[in-house]
Computed example of a mutant assay.
Amino acid sequence: MIKHIYRAEIVFFGKSNLKDLISCFDFIDEFEEIPSLTSSENPIIKEKINKYNLDFIISFHAKTFILKFLINTNAKKVITRNRPISIFSLKCKCVFVSFIKRFYKNRNDEFKMLYYARKINPKLFDKEIKNLNFDIKIKTNIYNKNIINNFLDQNNIKDKNLILLNPFSISAFYTLKLVDYLRLCQEIISKFKDIYIIIPSYEAVHKDFIREFKTFFKENPQRIYIFKNDDNILNICELIKRTKCVISPSTGVIHLASNLEKSSIGLFSEKDIIFWETFNKDYVLLNKTKEELSTYDILEIINEILLKLKRYL
């Protein structure tokens, strides 16, 4: 959108694990790998940003220390959400998210991103936006297809009914504990005799996950498989494309499923449903954090997931 409306050159700043995903999109001219910003001073990141002499930086993260850092780069303008530091900075153009939440029915995050792009040049944006057709579906490549084919062949599940169940989330408070996701796996395998579950894992969580997995199941369970991914997110995309349904809290995996137009069952809070609408809009509503859930709550959630899962098989 920014590329076509403003004829802009686009630089995407992000962690290394996003590089393969970003490579899918030909409208991004450069990918600049940067570590996480943890304070308002980081000369390495600042140097990487400053070398581009940017007209605009768009930041969806609006913590004070991040905005302070971006204001001190050589970018001409910073587009971000309203915060005291951004409101009173001549360098910032603010998106008033609370206003959007209150007065617009469509309040999901994809819709809100349009307002960030509009801040560059509202008049031109309003003129051109109606003429655009968006095709941002993620495309995998032969490498990803081979990785997933090998995994499915090794486990002899290539032509089976596959469910992808993701128990991992860094930022979602409204989810289940890992042991409860394993209990869900157990119930799915018990109730559906022709279903095969794949749990995607990654380096940062894998060791602890395997320990808890073995503690819970004691012996290797039938029809539950673990796919340990590397940093290539496109492998997960290819895996999602092979499944009947994705079960996940509100995190990257289920958002990828929505992009790929795959059915999912989201363990979402009310806020997640508003801001991160999924492709098929099928949710189990969680009104308590995982620490607050009682044993009865967990059983009710599992039973609701089992009922919903039937429609996708």
Rank of each mutant, 00 (worst) to 15 (best):
N141P: 00
T215N: 12
K241Y: 05
I254W: 02
P167S: 01
E238Y: 03
Q222V: 11
N131A: 09
L234V: 04
T175K: 14
C237N: 15
F216K: 08
D153C: 07
G266I: 06
E203R: 06
I138W: 06
K214M: 09
L176D: 00
N235Q: 11
I195W: 01
L164S: 02
I274G: 03
V179C: 05
R183W: 05
S264D: 08
T251M: 02
L234R: 13
K193T: 14
K137D: 03
K271A: 07
I157H: 03
N131H: 09
E261Q: 14
Y196G: 08
V246S: 03
C245H: 04
K160N: 09
S169F: 00
K241E: 15
Q222K: 15
C237E: 12
H206N: 13
L267V: 13
K214Y: 00
F213E: 10
F213A: 08
D135Y: 04
P167T: 01
N144D: 14
L182A: 07
N166K: 01
L152I: 07
Y196H: 15
L260P: 05
I274L: 14
I240S: 12
I170D: 07
I170C: 03
L239E: 06
L234D: 07
E212N: 07
D208M: 04
R242E: 15
N220D: 15
I274Y: 10
S171W: 03
I273F: 01
I247K: 02
N155T: 02
L182M: 13
S250H: 00
L162S: 04
H255P: 02
E219R: 06
K271G: 01
K214H: 09
L234S: 08
Q186R: 12
F173P: 02
I157K: 06
I170E: 12
I170K: 14
D153H: 09
F216S: 11
L178A: 06
L132R: 11
D180G: 08
N149S: 14
I136P: 00
N146M: 09
D135N: 15
I236D: 11
P221V: 10
I226R: 03
N235W: 03
I224R: 07
N232R: 13
I188Y: 09
K228A: 05
N220L: 11
N131R: 09
I129F: 05
Q186G: 02
T175R: 10
Y174I: 01
R242L: 12
E187W: 00
F227N: 11
C245D: 04
I273M: 12
I129V: 13
I265F: 05
N229K: 08
S190Q: 13
G252I: 08
K137V: 10
C237D: 13
K193Y: 12
L178P: 00
L178T: 13
P249Q: 00
D180F: 01
L164I: 15
F268S: 12
F217V: 05
K130C: 04
F275T: 06
I188P: 09
L165V: 07
K228L: 12
K271C: 06
N155K: 10
T243S: 15
N259Q: 09
F209R: 04
I210C: 06
L267M: 06
F192E: 14
D180P: 03
R211L: 13
K191T: 11
I254G: 04
K130W: 07
I197W: 04
I236H: 04
I148G: 08
C237W: 02
I157E: 10
Y202L: 03
K214P: 02
